[in-house]
Design a protein around this nucleic acid. Structure first.
Length: 211
DNA sequence: CCGGTGATGGACT
DNA sequence: GTCCATCACCGGA
C-alpha cells in the first residue's frame, strides 16, 4: 500500500484548516536506510494556526526549537516533549505563517513488524500509532528529522489516498492543550476509525513535590 | 473499562 | 522555577 502520487508543495501551501482534514487517509512513508520502509495512513490530525494561536509553539515568535514552523510548507516539524517523546507536524500555509498540522494517530499499512519492534509496549496493532508520540515512534521519527522536506526525493513523503467524504469527517477540541480553547474545529478524524486517540481534557498537573 | 500518577528533560519566563 | 501538543502502568470497578 505504498503506491500513489506524492503530494506536491502546493498541497501544503494552503490554509491549515483546509489542509488538515484533507490529510486524512493520506499515507506518510518513511524509508529508513537501515530499518526499511514504514507507511502510515493518517487517521487523526490537529491544526495549529501559528502566531495567532495561543496553543501553538509559534505563538511567541520564532525560536530555535520552532524554526521549522516559520519556514516553507511541506516540511516536517518534529519536537521533543515531556522529556521523552517526539511528535511530528506538517508545516502548512505560506512562509512565515508558522501554521502546522500535528499528526495525532495513524494506521500502519506497511512495515507492521518494524513498528512492533519500535513500540514493544503496544499490546495490539491498533495501539501502534494511537497518539502523536506513539505515531512518531512507530515511524522512527526523532529530532534528526526536524526540518526535512516531505516534497521530492527525501526519505519522507506523503502519498495521495482515498479522500474521506466531508460527511464522514468529525471535528472536536484539541487534546492536551490548556488555555483558551478557541472556536475553530481544531481536531479532525474520520468517522469509525478505531485508531483515533482518546480525548482527554487538558488538566495541568503539578510536578510531584519532593519529600 | 476508568482515573490517578511517575517518568524525564528541554524550552521558556 | 514552571510548564509541557504524552505515555505506560497500576489499582479499582
Amino acid at each position: 500500500m505504498t503506491r500513489g502520487r506524492t503530494l506536491g508543495r502546493s498541497f501544503y501551501a494552503r490554509d491549515v484548516l483546509t489542509v488538515a482534514p484533507e490529510l486524512l487517509n493520506k499515507v506518510l512513508v518513511h524509508d529508513d536506510a537501515e530499518a526499511g520502509r514504514l507507511a502510515m495512513r493518517i487517521v487523526e490530525v490537529e491544526a495549529y494556526l501559528g502566531r495567532d494561536d495561543p496553543a501553538s509553539h509559534a505563538y511567541r515568535g520564532p525560536t530555535r526549537r520552532n524554526a521549522t514552523m516559520f519556514g516553507p510548507p511541506g516540511h516536517l516539524y518534529v519536537y521533543f516533549t515531556y522529556g521523552m517523546h517526539w511528535c511530528a507536524n506538517l508545516v502548512c500555509g505560506p512562509v512565515g505563517r508558522a501554521s502546522a498540522v500535528l499528526l495525532r494517530a495513524g494506521e500502519v499499512v506497511a512495515g507492521v513488524e518494524l513498528a512492533r519492534s519500535r513500540r514493544p509496549a503496544a499490546k495490539r496493532d491498533v495501539d501502534l500509532a494511537r497518539g502523536p508520540a506513539r505515531l512518531a515512534s512507530s515511524l522512527g521519527l526523532s529530532g534528526v528529522h526536524d526540518g526535512l522536506d516531505v516534497v521530492g526525493s527525501g526519505p519522507l513523503r506523503v502519498l495521495e489516498g482515498t479522500p474521506v467524504p466531508s460527511s464522514d469527517v468529525r471535528t472536536g477540541p484539541r487534546v492536551g492543550v490548556s488555555g483558551p480553547g478557541g472556536v475553530p474545529p481544531w481536531r479532525f478524524w474520520a468517522d469509525g476509525e478505531p485508531t483515533v486517540s482518546v480525548y482527554r481534557p487538558a488538566i495541568p498537573r503539578r510536578r510531584a513535590s519532593r519529600a
